[in-house]
Design a protein around this nucleic acid. Structure first.
Lengths: 148, 148
DNA sequence: GCTAATTACTTCCGTATGCAAGCTTTTTAA
DNA sequence: TTAAAAAGCTTGCATACGGAAGTAATTAGC
């Protein structure tokens, strides 16, 4: 009984470096967004009322609170997100998508989707891509939030 | 005709954050190695004569030459790798695995393999893991070097 | 009700990375 | 042969991140 876990994880790590590099390049060139900035905006876009507190965002992005603070700052300066305070809890500050931000997310998501196609084109069947998506998705079911 | 490319790539990005965090934690705690340090050592372990030039390593790791310079330095101080010069080309400096380094790679690889299993245990069949590995591996065929 | 613990967020510091610039060596081309 | 181009490597600079520490606000325990 051969164990395929190690090669699967090894391939995941290597595939990620390729995907991240190409996606980052496209998003930066076309929209002036880093990949992580777009993911942050996409989590907001998928949240109710287009807003999340900073700790909720950190959990969605699976990163630290300090990273969210720094990632949100330039987005706020660009007018893509705003800052809402909670009337009941003064500790909470929500990151909320502005209309400008929502428009940019829609455009950048299209770039993301188009770029995603280029990874598979001509060498994967639609069924294989769906199978890959399902298998990878099962690894992430414990994560809060969704990009889809 | 639904397009699954985008969700597949989105899931790949999210799965990577989970995998990297858990693997890094285990490797650091058990062997005092970062994930990237182990990957570097594993590429050397898989190379002929256990050595690669710095640019070859950069291509395997899909990173920059300066990163290899900085990643190899602490490994050299720990005695895990050595430095070989090329008799024909004085520009080349090979990173070569020492016996100590080879032993550590074998131990750390076992940790890597054991940790890899924990991602799939009880919720993936062996066939599904093999399928995932094959599909992801097809994304990385263009990369030089191999971890397996 | 008051104190202690917890939570949300920010800032500081150490670390990791890519890119540009620089140095040395080799290869190319005239 | 010699000058120009390219390749391999390193260093400086700017950026991004996590964790610890700090501040402010809320909750828990008595």
């Amino acid at each position: 009984m051969t164990d395929q876990s190690f090669p699967a994880i090894a391939h995941l790590l290597r595939a990620h470096t390729i995907v991240e590099e190409r996606l980052s390049g496209e998003l930066s060139a076309v929209h002036g967004l880093s990949l992580n900035e777009l993911l942050l905006l996409m989590f907001l876009d998928g949240a109710t009322a287009g807003r999340l507190s900073r700790v909720e965002l950190a959990r969605c992005m699976h990163t630290s609170a300090s990273t969210i603070t720094r990632q949100a700052a330039p987005l706020e300066k660009r007018g893509l997100v705003g800052r809402d305070v909670d009337a009941r809890d003064a500790r909470l500050s929500y990151v909320v998508l502005t209309p400008t931000g929502k428009q940019l997310v829609e455009d950048a998501r299209a770039t993301f989707e188009r770029s995603s196609n280029t990874f598979f084109r001509d060498r994967w069947t639609e069924d294989e891509i769906a199978s890959l998506s399902e298998l990878l998705g099962r690894l992430t079911v414990s994560l809060p939030g969704s990009l889809i």
